[in-house]
Design a protein around this nucleic acid. Sequence first.
DNA 1: AAACTGACCACAATCGTTTGCGGAGATTCT
DNA 2: AGAATCTCCGCAAACGATTGTGGTCAGTTT
Lengths: 349, 349
Amino acid sequence: MKYNQVTIKDIARELGISPSTVSRALKDHPDISPQTKKAVNELAEKLNYQPNIVALSLRQSKTNTLGVIIPELVHFFFSTVISGIEDVAYSAGYNVIITQSNESLQREKTDIKALFNSRVDGMLISVSRETSSFEHIESILAKGVPMVFFDRVYENANSSTVIVDDLSGAKEATQHLIDQGCTRIAHLEGPPNLGITKQRLEGYIQALNDNKMPVQKDLIVSCPLGTIEEGKIAAEQLLKMPNRPDAIFATNDPAAMGAMQAIKEAGLKIPQDIAVVGFSNWFFSSLLEPPLTSVDQPGFEMGQEAAKLLIRQIEFKSKDNEDPAPETKVLKTRLIVRDSSLKKGKPKK
Amino acid sequence: MKYNQVTIKDIARELGISPSTVSRALKDHPDISPQTKKAVNELAEKLNYQPNIVALSLRQSKTNTLGVIIPELVHFFFSTVISGIEDVAYSAGYNVIITQSNESLQREKTDIKALFNSRVDGMLISVSRETSSFEHIESILAKGVPMVFFDRVYENANSSTVIVDDLSGAKEATQHLIDQGCTRIAHLEGPPNLGITKQRLEGYIQALNDNKMPVQKDLIVSCPLGTIEEGKIAAEQLLKMPNRPDAIFATNDPAAMGAMQAIKEAGLKIPQDIAVVGFSNWFFSSLLEPPLTSVDQPGFEMGQEAAKLLIRQIEFKSKDNEDPAPETKVLKTRLIVRDSSLKKGKPKK
DNA sequence: AAACTGACCACAATCGTTTGCGGAGATTCT
DNA sequence: AGAATCTCCGCAAACGATTGTGGTCAGTTT
């Protein structure tokens, strides 16, 4: 847009000097006399000169912008990740462009292309539920664009990633249910393409194994979308079993929420009849009745770490013209115990 | 970042023609022969040429980017507004940069400056809770940057705005409580700087007046932050009154939620003892017990309308070099009646 | 007095793309 | 055949900033 922008040329014309002198004066170059510097700075101040970032970006082949692709903004977890990213990015002098894939692979493809065209300096990506092939990512990666994946990562990539320890988080959650005396623990499994789904399932299984409890196939129900509705349907199915479970560990909070609805509608009590544990600690989870026990993921911290890794990668590359070794940051989860799982009352620890 | 970018020059060199010819060939200019066009397009396809948006932006003094400033991303309402904005912006060929003020005036100032420096073509703004002076906005407005305000608007500005009809939404909510037989209706008031706070209060008052009910000062309690905690404290205060209210209409859902907590902890029943109505229809509201009656704001639509207005303004201005007349779009709210307010059972309508 | 040294600044190229203008060669018209 | 008309393409400037190179003028050195 052609605002009434003040450019370096305007200052130069008004002062009867050349644009290059103005440029150098503004950055305190030793070649410029103190008087000229003073005059330039004062006029720049007076006219409220702001450098044109677009011109700068073109000149330096660097936009100082990070591109972010997330599945959906409305998820509390992803919102907090964004805040973490912005926190680090801003203080390092980077802007952030956020795009949503809406859990669609097609949209993810156009997003990544749009970000590339905008010449972002790097990308932070959490893949969609549908993403099972990765050519669209590989092709951009091949062009040398720095990328960091977070939460829902592209595992085969030779890139840095930030994840939470889903496995041990799930294990801890399941162990907690076992400690509460649950013997038939069901699991609501998530979208099949995602690594986090497998990790959470694995944590559940390990906990059972550690306690010499059998893993029963019919107690594991898939919720490929991970929505409230699916959780409800899955739980209804579980409740119809002749020997119904006495606990449900869900792959995420919405599914757990759906399960709670089904349990209550069946006239059963939480946690007395069936204990429920979720994953991600959504905003609403503490507001449910009973409040939902959940595995908290440090979203803000994840955003911070991912942005830090990416910026380090960008600046390393611009110096040494080489990619730094990829790093993987694993963040700790934290089990937030609330009433939905407390059959025995608060644990002593 | 200096990816392995293919430029128009690369194509020109390889084909032994000039960059200008390549440029024209790519946009099907009549001056270029069919053979040349074919050759250029095929090579561009083969090399996967993507135009450099940064160079384009500089050349045309237009970034095709909209800047957005919202108070907080984690609010369900604002997330949906963003989705509406992206929907319209993308299909019109615009990118979107989102910034959060975190309800801080200071942050809002730096955000608006950063967006200006990025040379966005226009801005979509919802002001922070703290914003009571507007010089930072005026100074950018004076430079000719198109702006559209939404939800929390800058009223004195000579700019387009998109709001919901807070007044009639609040009136409808209050009337609904009156219809349910409530006679002592309290109001939890919101942040004092915001226009929406005043409108909602005014709707509440008008509904009382319409029904010849007295407006009692002590039934109006301020929640300057509009949080769950404040709502709880405010409700506790109301419950201690000798003649306690039989209904609470809150300026937003978190405050209503807090009130519900206080009411339940006091051993009272919702809605039998005290009916509760919120505003904004947050995601969690339908999940509460009882489900919270709330005034739904069409967030997605608001985002769409705001983006449309802004883009129209941008393109009008680039043609006629004149600002179009400011427009104000008022969207209808919709009262979502749930159990938290149903003293009498479902209304017949 | 000639040469040298700084201090200070301007010129011009550059990033990638667009676009007004002009120009060479082929074709058509008179 | 000469002029006019097309067709098709290249030159160069421009967007706003940065930066290597070189130049002018003063003062200093031999």
